[in-house]
Computed example of a mutant assay.
Amino acid sequence: MSRSSLKDCTGLHVVAQTPFHAEGTVDLDSIDTLSAFYYSHGARGLTILGVSGEQAKLTPQEAIAVARRFIRVADGHRIIVGVSSPSLAQLVTVTRDAMAEGADAVMICPPRGTQTDEDLMRYFAAVFARIGETPTVLQDFPMHSGVRMSPPLIRRLVDTFPQIGVIKEEDLPSVTKITRLRDELGDRVRILTGNNGLYLPQELARGADGPMAGFSFPEMLSGVHDLFTAGDLPAAHDLFERYLPLLRYEAQGEWGIAIRKEVMRQRGALRCSALRMPGPVLSAVDKREIATMIERQNTDFRFDAGSAD
């Protein structure tokens, strides 16, 4: 395999949540309803076991059980498995097992400590020596990893390792980084964007191929991409701006992940919105506030300037 296996990786690929029961055990049954929710709202694929999927809180055995269930109900949709780990041995094991279960690709973010360009080249040489031709998404997320990859370095990685078919671009400012990556790479790889979709219209205008984000209203992410691709930019911006209050509210780190899971519980996608400990626990006040925001989100508000007179 090579990056050609990811050549059609466009449109919405939701960063999926990992469902848990209230006591913290993995809720495998809710993966079925969660997957159906994502697919019914325009997801072309899922990225599972990412940062907001609480991958770091799972054992390798749990990670594979979660991957297996998402793959089982994928119904033809692409499944990308986050395998990033400070342990190369664990990364290799989870990659091998996930691909054996039927995953389409893995996503890798370089670990802390790989600071220089040569460190990064050596690290990925070691990774691909062990995982072979596995199709790979390279995650560029320095706010999480502490590792900064310049566009020329990313080009070196793509040149050297044909397994890399997608860049998940989350460096800030993402719009200028996307422009520089397109200058370096042309259309050789796909570029998907994260940061919960906060800058999606501008990122699409700079050459991104779609969102890889976990916003609790995925129909906004898919809708903006589809309208933009169809050339209806005003409608794409209007749709995006309608969701900005909730989008901003979710952009609060780990607490924002708790908000997102509660929104999806209230929308029927999850039975329980719990994060695995350690993690924030929402109060009754928080949940009522979220319910109010959902109610407002579902209402088509219009402002009549004449009514303000």
Rank of each mutant, 00 (worst) to 15 (best):
L49C: 10
G50N: 07
V51W: 10
V51A: 15
S52R: 07
G53C: 09
Q55H: 14
Q55L: 13
Q55I: 06
A56D: 13
A56L: 06
A56K: 13
A56N: 10
K57T: 13
P60Q: 04
Q61W: 09
Q61I: 06
A63P: 07
I64W: 03
I64T: 09
A65I: 00
A67F: 05
R69G: 07
R69A: 11
F70L: 09
V73W: 13
D75G: 10
D75K: 15
G76H: 14
H77P: 01
R78V: 11
I79Q: 11
I79S: 01
I80Y: 09
I80V: 15
G82R: 09
G82S: 10
V83E: 01
S85F: 05
S87I: 00
S87Q: 12
L88V: 08
L88T: 09
L88D: 10
A89S: 12
A89R: 04
Q90I: 12
L91E: 07
V92E: 02
T93Y: 07
T95A: 04
T95G: 02
R96F: 08
D97Y: 08
A98Q: 05
M99D: 03
M99Q: 02
E101L: 11
E101D: 14
E101F: 07
G102L: 07
A103D: 00
A105C: 03
M107D: 01
M107L: 15
I108N: 04
C109Q: 14
P110T: 03
P111Q: 02
R112N: 12
R112H: 14
T114F: 12
